[in-house]
């Protein structure tokens, strides 16, 4: 049988060198997407004039377009109209595209999480003289984050896998390196099994971390 188990174990350490790039893309996109998602959620929840319908159109658009198309719009498309925009490198383009897409989904998650916080909490903040922003930052957001963490964990895990799209614009992440390894060695099955095992392990670790975070964050509520 043409299958070299040992090759998998030799491939894993070689591929792991590119794991930081994959994690950087995923975590970077996650942070930016969270920030954008919270802003979108606040705009819609507070029905802010003009911005609210704009946010809804944004969400509708980025939920509908395939991630790959979004990525190509940013990396290949935009420099066509703005030739000076060439400073957008492949890594930035990937992070921006993944953030824009995931922010659309996260906005809905944050909207739900913010609505889950009792309105009396903000009233209490105002009643002792805090501003809305102070109340939001110190009381509302921490409580909403606790509600959001389980789904945020899911989005991070999805982003780790989605970041493999970066190979299409020439970023050497863990998946791009696997492709190189596979075509150089002709050990396709072994190479892809090796990278699959790495993705699996990363997901297991992230799930564990998520569990710990959820436990720590729910401490005040038990």
């Amino acid at each position: 049988m043409n299958f070299d188990t040992a090759f998998i174990f030799e491939a894993i350490p070689k591929l792991l060198k590119y794991l930081p790039m994959t994690l950087m893309l995923a975590v970077g996109s996650m942070l930016l997407a969270c920030l954008m998602g919270i802003v979108l959620a606040l705009i819609i929840n507070n029905k802010i004039f003009i911005l609210s319908p704009v946010a809804k159109v944004y969400i509708s658009f980025f939920r509908s377009v395939p991630t790959l198309v979004t990525l190509f719009i940013f990396y290949v498309g935009i420099p066509q109209i703005f030739p000076d925009f060439t400073f957008i490198d492949a890594i930035t383009a990937t992070i921006v595209a993944l953030s824009f897409k995931n922010a659309a989904y996260l906005a809905e998650e944050f909207r739900g999480a913010l609505n889950a916080v009792d309105s009396g909490q903000m009233e209490a903040c105002l009643s002792v003289g805090m501003t809305k922003w102070q109340g939001f930052r110190r009381v509302i957001l921490p409580q909403a984050m606790r509600v959001a963490v389980p789904s945020l964990g899911n989005y991070l895990i999805m982003l780790v896998k989605e970041s493999s799209l970066a190979f299409t614009v020439g970023v050497t992440d863990i998946f791009a390196q696997t492709k190189i390894l596979a075509s150089n060695s002709f050990r396709f099955l072994e190479s892809y099994i090796a990278v699959a095992l790495i993705y699996w392990a990363v997901t297991i670790v992230l799930t564990m971390l998520q569990g710990k975070l959820e436990k720590a964050m729910s401490k005040p509520y038990r």
Binding site: D118, A124, S127, V128, G129, V139
Partner: peptide, 20 residues
């Protein structure tokens, strides 16, 4: 905000900050 600095409220449902 200035007027609210002058008073404080005790609510029917306490409304303590649940995360603190």
């Amino acid at each position: 905000y200035a007027l609210r600095q002058k008073s404080a409220m005790v609510f029917q449902h306490y409304n303590l900050f649940k995360n603190k």
